[in-house]
């Protein structure tokens, strides 16, 4: 059953067409990769899915519901969580609080509950702390939970973003270049982590990545974008040998 469907999605900025009639179907529990050269429209695609941009044309379906004009916070509450290519953490909050904020969309306590310390609010806060600690264990940042987010190393910040996204209990997780800036051993850890969270949390993962090795290794289905158009799609071994893809990446006639 498809969890996310894009039908003829087009996005224009002024005269620039960033995405051109893209069709995409992501099945549940899949690890789906999107690759393509710089400026191909990969991040734009993420921004459309998460509601930051409203597509100029086309239809966007999440669990068979149209989410074209759904604002970002509602998309998040529906179960789509994401990380950002240019890391966007809450720098002057602790690592633990970053993860706790991630749960905002799935918790309920209001201002009065918080101020008066009502039982429901206290209980929720306690659960929240425990859940956040578990997630920090999962990404290996538990020891650093009291640090400011901006004092973490680059790779750690990327993992914190994943933990924060997971705090939303998503059914679909979007990872925007999760391996960028990581060294090879960190990348191996990351691959393990991605597999682990998919299996443990039972979720679907859509990722944009430049690192071919990583994409080919963990993705079950890959779509290739070039200049806003989808030029190929399929399992890794098929995409790898696609002529258009090779041309796009190596710039030679194959």
């Amino acid at each position: 059953m498809p969890i996310l469907e894009l039908k003829d999605v087009t996005q224009e900025f002024g005269g620039l067409r960033a995405l051109n009639a893209v069709n995409l179907t992501v099945e549940e529990k899949q690890i789906f990769g999107i690759i393509g050269p710089n400026g191909a429209g990969k991040t734009t695609l993420f921004n459309i899915i998460t509601g930051i941009y409203v597509p100029t044309q086309g239809e966007l379906l999440f669990k068979n519901e149209i989410i074209n004009k759904t604002p970002p916070y509602t998309v998040a509450r529906m179960g789509i969580a994401r990380t950002f290519q240019n890391i966007r953490l809450f720098n002057k909050l602790s690592v633990l609080d970053n993860v706790k904020v991630g749960s905002h969309g799935v918790t309920r306590a209001g201002v009065f509950g918080n101020m008066l310390g009502l039982p429901a609010s206290r209980r929720e806060e306690k659960e929240l702390t425990e859940k956040a600690q578990l997630l920090l264990h999962l990404v290996g940042l538990y020891e650093k939970r009291w640090e400011y987010a901006d004092s973490l190393a680059y790779g750690e910040q990327r993992r914190l973003e994943i933990a924060r996204a997971l705090a939303l209990n998503p059914t679909l997780l979007l990872l925007d270049e999760p391996a960028a800036g990581m060294n090879s051993s960190e990348k191996v850890d990351l691959m393990e982590l991605i597999h682990k969270i998919r299996d443990d949390k039972n979720l679907t993962i859509l990722l944009v990545e430049h690192d071919m090795n990583l994409v080919m290794n963990i993705c079950e289905q890959i779509a290739v974008l070039e200049y806003g158009k989808k030029i190929a799609e399929g399992p890794p071994e098929i995409v790898k040998n696609n002529k258009k893809v090779i041309r796009s990446y190596l710039g030679v006639e194959a």
Binding site: P72, Y73, A76, R82, R88, N91, L93, V101, A165, L168
Partner: peptide, 14 residues
């Protein structure tokens, strides 16, 4: 605090 630190990320947290 999250809104102050990063509005877009805050939205993405619901």
């Amino acid at each position: 605090y999250a809104i102050r630190e990063n509005e877009i990320a805050a939205e993405s947290c619901g």
